[in-house]
Write a protein that binds this DNA or RNA. Structure first.
Length: 551
RNA sequence: UGGGGUGUCGCCAAGUGGCAAGGCACCGGGUUUUGAUCCCGGCAUUCGCAGGUUCGAAUCCUGCCACCCCAGCCA
């Protein structure tokens, strides 16, 4: 269903295939297990898994776990769950950079033996000073001239745990005057006496991203290592390491622009701030752009995948309109969500010429009969939305007005005669008459109803809690704000505790999405919903093109 | 003012010398027992700017301009 579209990644991979530089396509999604997946990751996942699928190749899931102090098993589990939920299946076992630590260590020795790496005792601050600046070249470290034997001995002792954290590092010997700062003798290993979630206390030293990533790709036979633009400057180093090491395969790194979506932030620090400040309910709050958040919000995984594909893949920075994601969500839900009735602001209607209850059979979807029908109780007293009634209104108002007719969706046409109001002037009850023979037919007298409204019979109803979500930020580009919390939309959540739902909805399963007719799509909350205490989250409202403000 | 990138409709984005796809948004009109969906139609004489090459340029050349990334023992 997703129309294949051209992008530079496909073009270049096809060129590699045609030229014989590659004979298959193997990609990988390499998250560091230090946080939850978000919409940006979903894009990367879509790109990597999509490319593999399109070219008949495979995509690996590899945890880039080279920094134990920031990582956690919790994220390893959560990421796998999110990936599966999104609908992707990685090839083979889950991989870990940490399972290549011994090989990486051996290759570091190869670099040392060839005079391409050395142990440097400069501390972090000194190293920064020696590195130079963007416009000035760096200076050689005083330890750059150590002999191969000395470097080998020192590095082996680093590995043996003889040095304290930060005491020394292993560096590649490239060029301290390179205009590309990544080539100014980059650090390959650092000493870190930390327990690793996978390797325990086996290692007192850990490879850096630069030393690990390309080699991991080579080990796994990754043909195309797709990453984001900020790694472009690292490519020369990526290639340098591959060239100087006896790796079994030569992967190619290609960068693309990360996805930015309006009205959202994806920085780990900022997402954490939202959680820690209590602005949201947690990492899976329905307003969060995390995969878990979108799941709890009721976004179909297929819609997220479709959106990632529709948005395209390029090398130019930009910000995609959130409306595009919402369009994808509505599109999928319109086709798949069963319809049901829910009255958000209950107003009592008494049908003065009805005195018996009955049951109506109503289609669950206006155009897809496979979704079947449901039985909906009908009777002399019902609830309609208070917004759907006015004592008087102009002809643009297509709902219930005294002296006028409206159709009860799936049921009869009624006409309002009068209403009761309390001392504040608020309407409390509307008295109407059912027009004879209007079930499935227009009134015989030719007077057509002004519109169609939804309803729930009071004798066949239940109460539900509704959580109405709106965008989390007032600023389209919240990531740019100096103070993130100053641009949060304080009205991003409105709770209705006494909405009225038709009784069939009490059988909803957590995570099941419905379209509450004329209102929007709602999902039974993963955590709070139960048949006894129904709780629905607003996934997304129906598109509202009603220009008229009054009536 | 070092290096690396990017500039095509309000937002994404195809296009790779032959006469500007598509989607989102928006604006009209039609259908409709959801003011939804669906359907039809409109929406860049112009591709950051200025020159040049060519019969012909968004695509090639030159020079500008704007924006993004890089000085973690993070990834």
């Amino acid at each position: 269903m997703d129309t294949p579209r051209s992008n530079f990644l496909k073009t270049q991979i096809q060129a590699d295939l045609d030229a014989g530089r590659s004979d298959c396509v193997v990609t990988r999604f390499p998250p560091e297990p230090n946080g939850f997946l978000h919409i940006g990751h979903a894009k990367s996942i879509s790109v990597n898994f999509g490319l593999a699928a399109e070219f008949g190749g495979q995509c690996h899931l590899r945890f880039d776990d080279t920094n134990p102090e920031k990582e956690n098993q919790i994220f390893i589990d959560a990421i796998q769950e999110d990936l599966r939920w999104l609908g992707y299946e990685w090839h083979g076992e889950v991989r870990f950079a940490s399972s290549y630590f011994e090989q990486l260590y051996q290759w570091a020795l190869v670099l040392i033996d060839a005079g391409n790496a050395y142990v440097c005792d400069l501390d972090a601050e000194e190293a920064r000073a020696y590195r130079g600046t963007l416009t000035e070249p760096g200076k050689d470290s005083p330890y750059r001239g150590r002999t191969t034997a000395e470097n080998r001995d020192l590095f082996q002792r680093m590995r043996a745990g003889e040095f304290a954290d930060g005491a020394c590092v292993l560096r590649a010997k490239i060029d301290m005057a390179s205009p590309n700062i990544n080539l100014r003798d980059p650090i390959l290993y650092r000493v870190r006496h930390a327990t690793h979630h996978q390797t325990g206390d086996d290692w007192p030293i850990y490879p850096t991203y630069d030393f690990a990533h390309g080699q991991e790709d080579a080990i796994e036979g990754i043909t195309h290592s797709i990453c984001t633009l900020e790694f472009e400057d690292h490519r020369p180093l990526y290639d340098w390491l591959i060239e100087h090491l006896p790796v079994p395969h030569r992967p190619r790194q290609i960068e693309f622009a990360r996805l930015n979506t309006s009205y959202t932030v994806t920085s780990k620090r900022k997402l954490k701030l939202l959680v820690d400040s209590g602005t949201v309910d947690g990492w899976d709050d329905p307003r969060m752009p995390t995969v878990a958040g979108m799941r709890r919000r009721g976004y179909p995984p297929a819609a997220i995948r479709h959106f990632c594909e529709e948005v395209g893949t390029s090398r130019s920075d930009g910000m995609v309109d959130m409306a595009m994601l919402e369009h994808a969500v509505r599109g999928h839900l319109n086709e798949t969500a069963p319809r049901a009735f829910c009255v958000l602001r209950p107003l009592k209607v008494v049908l003065t010429n009805v005195d018996e209850t009955s049951v109506l059979r109503i289609a669950n979807h206006p155009s897809d009969e496979s979704l079947g029908h449901r039985e909906v109780p009908f009777g002399p007293e019902l609830w309609i939305d208070s917004d759907d009634f006015r004592e008087s209104a102009n002809k643009k108002y297509k709902r219930l007005v005294i002296g006028k007719r409206v159709r009860l969706r799936g049921a009869y046409v009624i006409e309002a005669d009068r209403c009761d109001t309390d001392k504040a002037g608020t309407v409390t009850t509307v008295y109407c008459r059912v027009i004879e023979n209007t079930l499935g037919e227009d009134p015989g007298d030719g007077v057509k109803p002004k519109g169609v409204i939804h309803w729930v019979a009071s004798h066949g109803a239940a109460t539900a809690e509704l959580r109405l979500y709106d965008r989390l930020f007032n600023d389209a580009n919240p990531g740019r704000a100096e103070e993130l919390l100053s641009v949060v939309n304080t009205d991003s959540l409105a709770t209705i505790v006494d909405a009225v739902i038709e009784e069939s909805l009490t059988n909803a399963e957590p995570e099941q999405v419905f379209q509450f007719e004329r209102e929007g799509y709602f999902v039974a909350d993963r955590h709070a919903h139960s048949n006894a205490t129904p709780v629905f989250n607003l996934t997304i409202g129906l598109r509202d093109t009603w220009g008229g403000g009054n009536g």
